[in-house]
Design a protein around this nucleic acid. Sequence first.
RNA 1: UCCUCAGUAGCUCAAUGGCAGAGCAUCCGGCUGUUAACCGGAGGGUUGUAGGUUCGAGUCCUACCUGAGGAGCCA
Length: 435
Amino acid sequence: MAHEGTIAYIEDIARHEGERVVIRGWLHARRSSGRIHFLTIRDGSGFIQAVMSKAAVDEPSFLRADHLTQETALIVSGTVRADGRAPGGFELDVAALEVVGESADYPITPKEHGVDYLMDRRHLWIRSERQSAVLRVRAEVVSAVRAFFDDRGFVLADAPIFTPAACEGTTTLFPVRYFDDATAYLTQSGQLYNEANAMALGRVYCFGPTFRAEKSKTRRHLSEFWMVEPEVAYATLDDIVELAEDLVVSVVARVLERRQPELRRLERDTSKLELVRKPFPRITYDEAVAILNGKGQRFEWGGDFGAPDETLLASAFERPVAVTHYPSAVKAFYMEPAPGRPEVALCVDVLAPEGYGEIIGGSQRIADYDLLVRRIQEHGLPPEAFQWYLDLRRYGSVPHGGFGMGIERVVAWICGLDHLREAIPYPRTLNRLYP
RNA sequence: UCCUCAGUAGCUCAAUGGCAGAGCAUCCGGCUGUUAACCGGAGGGUUGUAGGUUCGAGUCCUACCUGAGGAGCCA
């Protein structure tokens, strides 16, 4: 049974209406009705229903199709036909079918499965309609982030993964043996190196995996996650907030423009995403505390917001909200104090709507040498580890700032996921290191 | 680290302390438009582990193991 036609991908199928095409993929699902088989084929770019009627193919092919199992690799060829009954608008009338690879007892059936079961089979789960849609959105988010910075004159200057000590000192680090008798730590942020890079290159960003050994067990945490971190020389807090705003708007717009089929498959209410435009509401920490207390959430000035506080705060707005000027005491050691009000920092958190919480955290950095030394001491950090960082304040120090945006949180928000583990191909969590 | 919940067929789940069950998946048969198709039939069990209470434990008690959600911390 020879194949005729041009090799096509399902996402481009509309361009081939009426033509004879060859699709190379896998069997996603099969339904049968005596003299007609319905085969849902996936090829990585999309899903399409292939219709095989008994009259159109030879007898052995028809019988064979009735016994194809889920995820059998196959090549089908036939004619593309527009059909209002098909979810994608098109179907394929099969003329020839060839099995490339068998698949016996595929473990993920079209019925329900538990989280642990699916996570143990993550390498197969990503073949599903929903998971593959999320990963395609993720790729678009990453692409949009890179395009945003590249188009604005930012230089990609990556930070190391192996680091000699804590960047912020507070969170737990993953130690790894570094050659014979040294200990390195997996990075939890590229920021300090980013600051050095900004002094060299002006506007920079780094983008890579970061690691946190926090024993968090929630839907908002991973022990390995991807973060993009811009850093800008001569930037003030206002510049940083505006940059964060522009980035989020740009990423959401790009996904809306290019990933509608995926968002539909995820049943995402895109009207909420359409609202993500400039300007975002900006409030100070003081105002945020007042909002919380006004909503009946008793919150005392001075603490950091918990997840329920963030959700309640964000629910007061339909766009992402930028919260600035947190108490210095709950923030990192390198944040610049506000002029005339040193108990608060020139920092910003951007909270996503719909309960997704903090997606961005950033600040203006301390430019003054003496103040930075004092802060390092106050936080009990080892001064010798920060000598290179202090050099940045010894040699031509300038005001500067930046932020970090967690990619998985952004993907989870845009896709409407209820857990970060679906926003990355192979999530690493407290209890998950396989596959 | 703490709090709460859950482990029964390949999967998702039932089962007043009293015969171990259903749906799906698999296999066989039927059906010309199915969308988690449908209809009929068959096979499929060391109830997470170790003890204990009881005439009798999937069910009650103790310890442990595994997982989930949340807190703290963070993106």
